Simulated scan of single mutants.
Amino acid sequence: LSLSLSLELPLSPPNFLALSLSLSLSLNFYRLLGSVENICQDEVLPPNSPWTCPGDRVFFDASVIWGLVGPRRIFGPLGNYGALINWFFLGGALGPVLVWLLHKQFPNQQWIKLINLPVLLGATASMPPATALNYTSWVAVGTLFNFFVFRYRKTWWQRYNYVLSAALDAGVAFMGVLIYFSVSMEDKASLHWWGTAGEHCKHASCPTAKGIHVDGCTPAASNCP
């Protein structure tokens, strides 16, 4: 079907690929919304349900923070963080300059020039909903292949590193589909381990705003060890 459409429609390959992806995603979203009961509703979903929509929830929370509540009550004088956090952008702007100055001051320290603050800071933008487990595995694999293998087995790195990166991405996608059809769709088994056990703190959902009190929450309860 895709081949016949590509031959009949006057579209270039990139445009046809974009059209195919858009249609596929739209159809999948439509199917999920109609087939998964209570999708994206944590309160009524069964335990360990994979349909909690963490990415969409982060987008919704950001819309509430910036649109409904307003930045003044979050990051301004009426919020809990204070006005000092509004100047943290200077750290991101001056950080690369500091790394450059350190490299000029200590030219023999080759590891300094490997520090890429835009990558390190920009990657944290996905921290919600990603967990620390995602970042530790990223650091471990990246350090192993892009530092040790690159330094001591450069020929192997030049020949296979790009293929390895594509294989890891494809493996994640393949295993996601395999686990869904073999385990999740039929609810054959449930995975129980500390990485899927939530916040490990029963007070993690307690409000921290001043003057707001909820039954079962105390001012000290919001600070979990």
Rank of each mutant, 00 (worst) to 15 (best):
L1W: 08
S4N: 05
L5V: 12
E8I: 02
P10E: 00
S12K: 14
P14L: 09
L17A: 13
A18D: 06
S22V: 07
S24D: 02
S26E: 10
L27A: 14
G34M: 06
S35Y: 00
E37N: 11
E37G: 01
E43Q: 08
P46R: 03
S49R: 10
W51Y: 15
W51G: 09
P54C: 04
G55S: 02
L68C: 05
L68Q: 10
V69G: 03
G70I: 04
R73G: 01
F75P: 00
F88G: 08
G91M: 09
P96D: 06
V97R: 04
L98S: 11
Q110R: 14
I112F: 01
K113N: 05
L117N: 03
L121W: 07
A123P: 01
A125D: 14
P128W: 13
A132H: 13
F147D: 08
Q158A: 09
Y160V: 04
N161H: 15
A173I: 03
G176F: 02
V177E: 00
F181I: 05
S184L: 10
K188M: 07
A189K: 12
H192F: 09
W193C: 07
W194R: 04
T196Q: 05
T196F: 06
G198V: 10
H200S: 07
P207V: 02
G211W: 05
C217N: 06
A221W: 05
P225M: 07
